[in-house]
């Protein structure tokens, strides 16, 4: 039983939020390609949600387009989640490998991503009084994704429910620490770059004169 293609596995997981991941783990299935595709779609969904939204629902600051916030909101956050979860759970006797954490977490993000796309499209058909439909879709997407993420972490590490919750909380803490360090690192790099650029200017002036 359960000889499914990778795409059919995605459908299976979405339809079985509680034990879908267990089945997939049992069959050692799941594709990294699909996982990366989902995260890329999350990136696109973030952009669509900000820039292509119906004008009557949201007015973007459309003077400049800066792609960095969208990259942070999708790739960076997802990467931090994967690395953070892996580092926390390898200390907490988790069984998940980095590859599996990445795949399972990405699969769990599908409803959230879909919700963003659906709402972006709906916002061009609905007026503000009918916003409640979009709000419902949004809530469904978020809750569905949360449930999926919970069961993904539980089955990838073979944890109990309480331990999963603790692991998720610790992962969020680890993410915060990582991102803070990242910001620190970036500003350090910036200072170093500025130092070298001033050095270069100084020397070039001296050579010229």
């Amino acid at each position: 039983m359960m000889e499914l293609s990778p795409v059919r596995w995605v459908a299976h997981i979405l339809r079985h939020p509680v034990d879908g991941f267990e089945d997939m783990r049992w069959k050692k299935s799941g594709s990294l390609k699909i996982a990366f595709f989902i995260v890329f779609m999350l990136f696109l969904a973030n952009i669509a949600n900000e820039r292509l939204y119906g004008f009557n629902h949201y007015i973007p600051y459309d003077r400049i387009f800066n792609v960095v916030p969208y990259i942070v909101k999708s790739f960076v956050i997802f990467g931090a989640w994967t690395v953070g979860n892996w580092s926390v759970c390898s200390l907490l006797d988790g069984e998940g490998k980095m590859r599996n954490i990445c795949i399972y977490s990405a699969y769990a993000l599908i409803p959230y991503t879909a919700q963003m796309f659906i709402n972006t499209i709906l916002s061009h058909f609905l007026i503000r009084d009918e916003y409640v439909f979009m709000a419902i879709i949004r809530i469904i997407g978020i809750v569905w994704s949360a449930v999926l993420l919970f069961s993904a972490i539980r089955s990838v590490h073979q944890y109990s429910a309480t331990k999963t919750i603790a692991a998720i909380a610790l992962t969020i803490g680890a993410m915060a620490i990582m991102l803070a360090l990242l910001v620190l690192f970036l500003s350090l790099i910036q200072h170093v770059l500025i130092f070298f650029s001033t050095l270069f200017t100084e020397i070039s002036y001296r050579i010229r004169s």
Binding site: G54, F55, N56, I59, F125, I127, R128
Partner: peptide, 22 residues
């Protein structure tokens, strides 16, 4: 009306115009 409301950033007028357009 939608076009001009967009240029003026007037979301409420845009919304009403959009309702009529729909």
């Amino acid at each position: 009306a939608m076009e001009y409301a967009k240029l003026a950033d007037a979301r409420k007028i845009y919304d009403k115009a959009f309702e009529g357009y729909r």
